[in-house]
Design a protein around this nucleic acid. Sequence first.
DNA 1: ACATGACACCCGACCGTTCGGTAGGTTGAT
DNA 2: ATCAACCTACCGAACGGTCGGGTGTCATGT
Lengths: 213, 213
Amino acid sequence: MTKNDPAQGSSRRADILSHATEAFVSRGYAGTSMADLARAIGIQKASLYHHFPSKETLFVACVTEGYEGAVRRLEVIRTDGATTDSERIRAAMEEIYRINLTTPVGRMAPLIAEVAATIPEIAQAFHSGFIARHYATVTGMIEDGITRGSFARVDPLGMQHLIFGPVITLALSREMTASFPDRDALYPVDRIRETHIDLIMRLLTERELSDGS
Amino acid sequence: MTKNDPAQGSSRRADILSHATEAFVSRGYAGTSMADLARAIGIQKASLYHHFPSKETLFVACVTEGYEGAVRRLEVIRTDGATTDSERIRAAMEEIYRINLTTPVGRMAPLIAEVAATIPEIAQAFHSGFIARHYATVTGMIEDGITRGSFARVDPLGMQHLIFGPVITLALSREMTASFPDRDALYPVDRIRETHIDLIMRLLTERELSDGS
DNA sequence: ACATGACACCCGACCGTTCGGTAGGTTGAT
DNA sequence: ATCAACCTACCGAACGGTCGGGTGTCATGT
């Protein structure tokens, strides 16, 4: 009958956000009900509405408050002057793998696509606040390397898709096969990541090749 | 009051499937209601249940009947003996772009991930029926090329992710930004595809490089 | 030291609406 | 006469959201 969490002050909000993010990411927006969510947290539905005025508001909070840290960590890697261009790209790619495979942020893209038609503002916010900044940071690192002569003159846009595409697709594939007993054999993260980084580094540091045809 | 479509015979089923696929793909499984779907098609909800006994059955039909043609077309490209290994890879990649960007099949992966927990059979079917066969075909083409000496000795698994990842992510990105006025400028399909193919061909046909470090 | 009231937090019960699904009848072609 | 195709009308359950009220905390006035 007493207050559930007297020692923690207002950690309820963060508790709700983490549970809601996990639920939205794994079951979709429409597939997540406020009643189920409240049950998972261990409070009543009306208490949920005390912290967030609507399901949509809760969802927007999950998305926007989820990516801030991830964006900043990648931007820090770019401005880290203590390493070489190649080492920075490698560190950035390892961070991108970490974000997309071990945090819910990387599994949010399908979620945004699902609600983009009904909540257009969320697609704009996610794209300008997370994706565009993520892409711009990596593209900037590549352009830095080209300017300094460390990298071959590749198309930064093409490289951007070659760097992010496999990671995001891998996160989606693992999400889709989460229940498979042989998931880790089908999608071995460490091997795929190392091979991926190796191939990207080859393209970035190769000497100019003669144009094929 | 007369029959709606007297000339078409039993095209209603195909009509339902195409409308349902589009709805599922753009609004998610839970976000698609049978009533809305019936309204979009122009029939009553009970008529929907005349053709499909349940929402889940309809969904499974959308998925399984959606990828058969796509898989076969790619397998035909592999066994086409009239072209070189490089031309086959190029043709396969163009077909992969076409499938993922102009048909609903390419946008189904997030959908499968959404329902994987509640309908486990669908994830298994989609993975073994579509993804695994798609991957195996491309991996096989690469191994063919390596065996014949046309390609460098790359890791087929790594190349597989480098080939499919950017395409699937591009389809997802364009889905997510469908309402943006500048979507085609943000994600210019033709330029991204050509650059992607070019980079893949470079990796496949490059002479052995000295190992960087 | 103590009463007081504002406040954050949470609850059980309930609202109107929509959900997936069903019952039973009508139509039109074979 | 039969039967696939389609209809109107309806069901119980679950949905997002609201209501009035209960409880513990804390700053304040006396």
